[in-house]
């Protein structure tokens, strides 16, 4: 499983031109294999989030290419890219980005709903996912009442809805204490190992290193 390339990044360059040009990525190339957990480390401003955004189809690079499962996503139009993201990626955010007025289960259900899975099927699938992440008792609590660790586990469950080929996580442990940080790291590591999901994480949290099979360092836009 680990031999197949899931994401292929070639000579990626990104220049922001709002005031004076900022070269965020200066020719990044990397292959990420299926079921691999890749950790991209680097200081603030090194280009980690830019790289993750381009890999995840959220940002179009100035030059270079990204191919996911053989499809070059950097050539897709806006709408096609949105469809591609919906089918193939799950996202985990630093600030959780849950819908606070909804329960944990409803947050996950929504992720199924937007993929066309509705009603009882979506409810059952979301509860199963939450149970797998040890959250069955918290499924009916509003997201705003959950602890940071619980919120991030709900966010992971939401990212898993629709069975994506890759999960992209931006600083997933930065707002968590040591214990919860370890739980989240283990979950992500297990997903890669047991489900074969490709995991790409950006972080400057050394605790994640233990779970990652592949760690790269990004400095000043270069690996």
């Amino acid at each position: 499983m680990l031999d197949k390339v899931a994401v292929s990044v070639r000579d990626l360059r990104m220049t922001y031109t709002s005031t004076k040009p900022v070269h965020a990525l200066k020719g990044v190339s990397i292959d990420i294999r299926e079921g691999e957990m890749l950790l991209i480390m680097g200081p603030s401003g090194s280009g980690k989030s830019t790289l993750l955004s381009i890999i995840g189809g959220l940002l179009t690079p100035t030059a270079g290419s990204v191919a996911v499962l053989g499809s070059e996503i950097t050539r897709l139009r806006r709408k096609e890219l949105a469809r591609f993201r919906l089918r193939n990626f799950g996202y985990v955010f630093q600030g959780f980005n849950l819908f606070n007025a909804m329960t944990g289960a409803e947050n996950v259900e929504l992720a199924y709903n937007v993929r066309g899975i509705r009603g009882r099927r979506a409810r059952k699938a979301s509860r199963d996912l939450l149970a797998q992440l040890g959250l069955e008792e918290h499924a009916n609590r509003p997201a705003r009442d959950l602890s940071g660790g619980e919120k991030q586990r709900v966010a992971i469950a939401r990212a898993l809805a629709g069975d994506p080929c890759a999960i992209l996580a931006d600083e997933p442990t930065s707002q968590l204490d040591t214990e919860n940080g370890a739980i989240v790291t283990n979950i992500l590591s297990d997903l890669a190992r047991k489900r074969g999901t490709t995991i790409v994480i950006t972080s400057h949290d050394d605790r994640i290193r233990r779970g990652a099979e592949h760690v790269v360092q990004l400095d000043d836009g270069r690996l």
């Binding site: 709408k79 949105a82 469809r83 591609f84 993201r85 996202y91 955010f93 980005n97 819908f99 937007v114």
Partner: peptide, 16 residues
């Protein structure tokens, strides 16, 4: 905005 932005990032289309 953050919540709508999250939906947009996930890949939800404009019509939704």
């Amino acid at each position: 905005f953050q919540e709508y932005g999250t939906l947009k990032a996930i890949g939800v289309n404009d019509a939704y």
